[in-house]
């Protein structure tokens, strides 16, 4: 679904660009290709890292690590797991839902979801390439702290 939207958007933009100037469209493709070439090693490495992490830590293992006890330790584990892993949303939400029913606290689930989407340990090298080291460290570091605060607040309000 997402992919279809991206391609429709692309077709519209390329069509419009071609209508206005063939020369500039060619230039745009060159700019895009050059940036892609620059990012390619990082992107390929991510494929491998994601495979390894989910191979070693399949969803069942994650739920065992996070779901069994509902203490501070579980929350800390969830925060770190969320930051290091890269799980597509379509898998992570059902996983979080089943953890919640299995007895994990709202705080634990909230911290897992929030670090999962906002902190990217695996993608940090790519982020550094595109936006710089300082930007990447600050964004991820502060997002991690924010995730802990968000989760604590949600735990207080929702339980």
């Amino acid at each position: 679904m997402t992919t279809i939207i991206v391609y429709i958007l692309l077709a519209l933009c390329v069509g419009l660009s071609l209508l206005k100037s063939r020369e500039k469209t060619k230039k745009a493709f060159i700019v895009g290709a050059r940036a892609l070439w620059k990012m390619a090693p990082g992107l390929l490495a991510i494929v491998g890292v994601v495979g390894l992490i989910l191979g070693i830590l399949p969803p069942e293992t994650i739920s065992r690590l996070v779901g069994e006890e509902a203490g501070l330790m579980a929350t800390a584990t969830a925060a770190v797991l969320g930051a290091v892993t890269l799980i597509p949303a379509l898998i992570s939400f059902p996983l979080a839902g089943s953890l919640l029913r299995a007895g994990a606290t709202v705080t634990t689930i909230a911290v897992f979801i929030t670090t999962l989407v906002m902190v990217g340990f695996v993608t940090a090298p790519l982020e550094i390439k595109a936006l710089g080291k300082k930007f990447t460290l600050l964004r991820n570091g502060m997002s991690f702290i924010a995730a802990l605060i968000i989760a604590a607040v949600m735990g207080v309000i929702l339980t």
Binding site: K27, A35, L52, G55
Partner: peptide
């Protein structure tokens, strides 16, 4: 298991990434 996940991920990337970089190029030029 890792190879399965990695291949799935690669498929998604190959589909989504080229258009995004073309869009980026268009943005850059236009």
């Amino acid at each position: 298991r890792s190879t399965d996940v990695a291949l799935d991920y690669l498929k998604e990337m190959v589909l989504v990434i080229p258009p995004v970089f073309v869009l980026m190029g268009l943005l850059e030029i236009w």
